[in-house]
């Protein structure tokens, strides 16, 4: 009971500034937005997109293939930055002020993470709304399942980002170092921008992309946004996102408990 109340307190605290200044949402979705506007139009002519990542070949609009990857990129970039805000609070003293309250430590992690997920899903909905006038086709059940998957993925990445911030509290460069080193390989190896197929990629690159859990999330999102719910790639995607979420939340709660220990 106290865990729930405390989670709500932690969540409400983090969400308030977003509600007071909703414009802030737009800044953290800049990267996927720019890629959609300035990069995606190239795909229709290159023919690179459709057919990759589990979707049927030649599924029409390049949006259909590209947009799900952009949602995953959104989750990866915006949510990974979550730790930076925590890091700021650690150095300013605001986090210490929360640590000295009786707030439940798990609730402190979960509340913060949930806020990241709410922001992420709002941004995802915004992107989908912007695409409605284009020839991007929204399969409602698949899209809803896709957003659920994105939420699970966001929990994992957000919690891992907080974990990293907690472990970097004595040397902040660690946070930014690890984030940079991890973010781009995960992104590039997931086939978000160009498909990494067995035929097109060198074997080592293909193997690396298969090991990358984000690849499976991307492929599941593509299948779901294509309206295919009963697919093995969808299962793998949920398994990958679920594993990341479990790992993130477990490590994050432990990190919170150890923050004052």
């Amino acid at each position: 009971m106290k865990v729930l109340t405390d989670t709500r307190t932690a969540f409400a605290r983090e969400l308030k500034p977003e509600l007071r200044q909703p414009v802030g949402l737009l800044f953290t979705m800049m990267l996927p937005f720019l890629l959609l506007a300035l990069f995606a139009p190239l795909l229709s002519n290159s023919g690179a997109g459709p057919g990759a990542g589990g979707g049927p070949a030649g599924a029409g609009s390049p949006w259909q293939w590209f947009v799900p990857g952009m949602l995953v990129l959104l989750g990866l970039s915006a949510t990974a930055g979550a730790g930076a805000s925590l890091l700021n609070e650690i150095s300013s003293g605001a986090f210490e002020r929360l640590l000295v309250t009786p707030l439940n430590r798990a609730a402190m992690l979960v509340g913060r993470t949930l806020k990241e997920v709410v922001v992420l899903l709002t941004q995802a909905l915004l992107i989908l709304l912007l695409l409605l006038p284009t020839d991007f086709r929204l399969h409602l059940p698949g899209a809803l399942a896709g957003l659920v998957l994105l939420g699970v993925f966001g929990v994992g990445i957000g919690a891992l980002s907080f974990t990293l911030a907690l472990h970097s509290r004595r040397r902040q460069t660690l946070f930014y170092g690890v984030q940079q080193v991890v973010f781009f390989p995960l992104l590039l190896l997931s086939g978000v921008l160009l498909p990494i197929t067995e035929a097109a990629a060198p074997t080592w690159l293909y193997v690396l992309s298969r090991i990358n859990p984000v690849t499976h999330v991307v492929e599941a999102e593509r299948a779901l946004f294509d309206g295919q719910l009963i697919e093995s790639v969808v299962l793998y995607g949920f398994l990958a996102a679920g594993a990341i979420a479990m790992l993130g939340v477990t490590a994050g709660i432990r990190g919170m408990r150890n923050a004052s220990a």
């Binding site: 007071r20 805000s85 700021n88 609070e89 300013s92 003293g93 605001a94 000295v100």
Partner: peptide, 13 residues
């Protein structure tokens, strides 16, 4: 408890 740092988060009201 009043720490040496600032207790309130910068971006909050």
């Amino acid at each position: 408890y009043l720490g040496q740092g600032n207790s309130a988060g910068t971006g909050f009201r």
